[in-house]
Computed example of a mutant assay.
Amino acid sequence: MNYLTQEKTFLSFIFTKAKYAASFEHLHFNLLAKTDEVAFLENGTPDIQDYLHDLPKIDDQANKKIAAIVRNANPFTLGHKH
């Protein structure tokens, strides 16, 4: 973690096997998502709670249609071309 601080990186993510998630939680990583096989964790600032807090608030959001686009734009796998 000292290296990350020196490089001004204050947020790190772990993508690991699900069976190792608890080990990283003991190191103060927060579990973001987990399946039977894998886990995704974060540690640092700003974290997911900061992000959620900063999202704009929409009046009567429960009754509005909301959409999102998910795109694979990884230039190393050329996933954005599919």
Rank of each mutant, 00 (worst) to 15 (best):
P46T: 04
Q49G: 02
K17L: 11
E7F: 07
H28L: 04
A33S: 06
E25M: 08
D54T: 11
T77L: 11
F10V: 11
G79Q: 11
N74S: 12
D47K: 04
Q6C: 10
K8T: 13
G44R: 02
F15R: 12
A22R: 10
L52R: 08
K65P: 03
Y51T: 10
T77H: 08
H53S: 12
S23V: 09
N74I: 07
D36V: 01
T9A: 10
K64H: 10
E25H: 01
P56E: 09
V38W: 01
E7W: 08
T5P: 00
K64C: 12
P56I: 04
I69Y: 12
E7I: 01
E7C: 09
F40C: 02
K17W: 04
D50K: 05
T77R: 06
K19G: 05
Y51M: 06
L27D: 10
P75Y: 09
N43R: 14
R71W: 14
P56S: 07
L32H: 01
K57G: 04
K19C: 06
H26L: 14
Q49Y: 05
H26D: 15
T9Q: 15
L4Q: 11
E42D: 01
A39V: 02
N30Y: 03
D59Q: 10
D47S: 12
Y3A: 14
A21R: 01
H26G: 02
Y51L: 11
A21I: 03
L11C: 11
P75K: 10
H80Q: 14
T5E: 15
F24Y: 15
N30G: 00
F13C: 05
H82E: 12
K8G: 13
F40W: 09
T5C: 14
L55W: 06
N72G: 10
P56Q: 08
I14W: 05
D47V: 02
G79A: 06
I58W: 09
K34V: 04
S23A: 13
L11Q: 14
Q49E: 09
I14S: 05
S23F: 11
Y20P: 00
Y20E: 08
I58P: 00
A39C: 01
F15Q: 09
Q6V: 02
T5L: 15
K65I: 07
D50L: 06
I69H: 10
S23N: 08
K8L: 08
E42G: 03
T77V: 08
H80A: 12
L27V: 01
D59S: 11
D47R: 03
E37T: 04
D59F: 05
D50Q: 04
A39G: 02
L11S: 11
F15K: 12
T77G: 06
A22G: 01
A39H: 03
A73R: 10
L78K: 15
F40A: 02
E37V: 00
L27K: 13
N30T: 11
T9V: 15
L31N: 04
K19V: 12
N72Q: 12
L52T: 06
P56H: 07
K57T: 10
Y3W: 14
T9D: 05
T77E: 06
L27H: 02
D54N: 12
T16H: 03
Y51D: 02
T9N: 14
K65T: 13
N63Q: 14
T16M: 02
E7R: 15
F76M: 11
L78Q: 13
E7Q: 15
D50Y: 07
G44P: 00
D59C: 03
D60A: 13
G79P: 07
T45V: 09
L31T: 01
N43C: 03
H28A: 05
I48M: 08
N30W: 00
D47Q: 02
L4D: 11
